[in-house]
């Protein structure tokens, strides 16, 4: 168990293992995304009140869910890097921020495109929407802080502290639709008790959520591999790798 944990700190090992994970994960992700998209957009029944416009949930809900989960991944990686001074956790944390920011942005944009025909407005200052906007600012703050430091080791530690401080906001965002009366509907999918969404619409949605989690993992691993190569570009194993590629 602990040897596995310690091996995670080694760049060549992580590079190799992430390569073999991606070989299976990337095709599986693309397949799940494709199936989920076609199923959700073409083969589910239209909503009796919203017609076809509700189909945007197959992008909106997964993007929003993974954007929130991505913040926890970033903060956890930050905590690991602060506690065990693990270089690879630094890289994971730093690579989470742009992906999470992009997903939050996608969730906000798809929500506003859906809001125009349904609520009659592009934007409302509702608790859930405002708190997602705050999440976007938190992600952008981490990116801005990282870019401001010249010393990348200090930058990673500073970002770790900032992302841990920011975690106080995440439960508030998650619970905002239950705590405040808001225009945004409360969560339709429940792990305990009956979901308020029909199974014919629910299954493609669950598939899309799983696909987005996998997509997040793929994007994270791809970014981490690029970052590892960049940081280790003066070492022997990277040179050997590049020479082997060039032949």
């Amino acid at each position: 168990m602990w040897t596995f944990f310690h091996k995670l700190g080694s760049p060549p090992w992580l590079y190799a293992i992430s390569g073999s994970i991606l070989k299976y994960l990337l095709p599986a992700t693309l397949l799940a995304l494709g199936v989920g998209m076609v199923w959700g957009l073409l083969f589910t029944p239209p909503d009796f009140r919203q017609g076809d416009s509700y189909r945007i949930i197959y992008i909106h809900v997964p993007a929003a869910a993974v954007a929130l989960a991505g913040y926890y991944v970033m903060a956890t990686a930050g905590a690991i890097s602060l506690i065990w001074k693990m270089k690879m956790a630094d890289i994971a944390m730093q690579c989470c921020a742009p992906i999470g920011a992009a997903l939050t942005f996608v969730a906000l944009v798809t929500g506003s495109i859906w809001g125009k025909p349904t609520w009659g407005t592009w934007w409302v200052w509702d608790a859930r929407i405002t708190s997602m906007l705050i999440l976007l600012f938190l992600y952008l703050g981490v990116i801005a802080l990282y870019e401001a430091y010249d010393n990348k080791a200090a930058a990673a530690r500073a970002c770790a502290v900032l992302s841990l401080v920011g975690t106080v906001n995440i439960p508030i965002i998650y619970k905002s639709v239950d705590w405040w009366y808001s225009l945004h509907q409360p969560a339709s999918i429940k792990f305990t008790g009956e979901s308020s969404i029909h199974p014919s619409m629910l299954y493609p949605l669950l598939l899309m959520i799983a696909a987005f989690y996998a997509l997040f993992a793929c994007a994270l691993l791809l970014r981490m591999r690029a970052e590892i190569l960049d940081r280790e570009r003066r070492t022997g194993w990277v040179r050997k790798l590049l020479e082997a590629d060039a032949v």
């Binding site: 405002t130 600012f137 801005a144 802080l145 401001a148 920011g166 106080v168 906001n169």
Partner: peptide
Amino acid sequence: GGMLISLLILPLYMP
């Protein structure tokens, strides 16, 4: 640091 500090702490001031 002047501009950066506002980007970092304004989201935390909002609640």
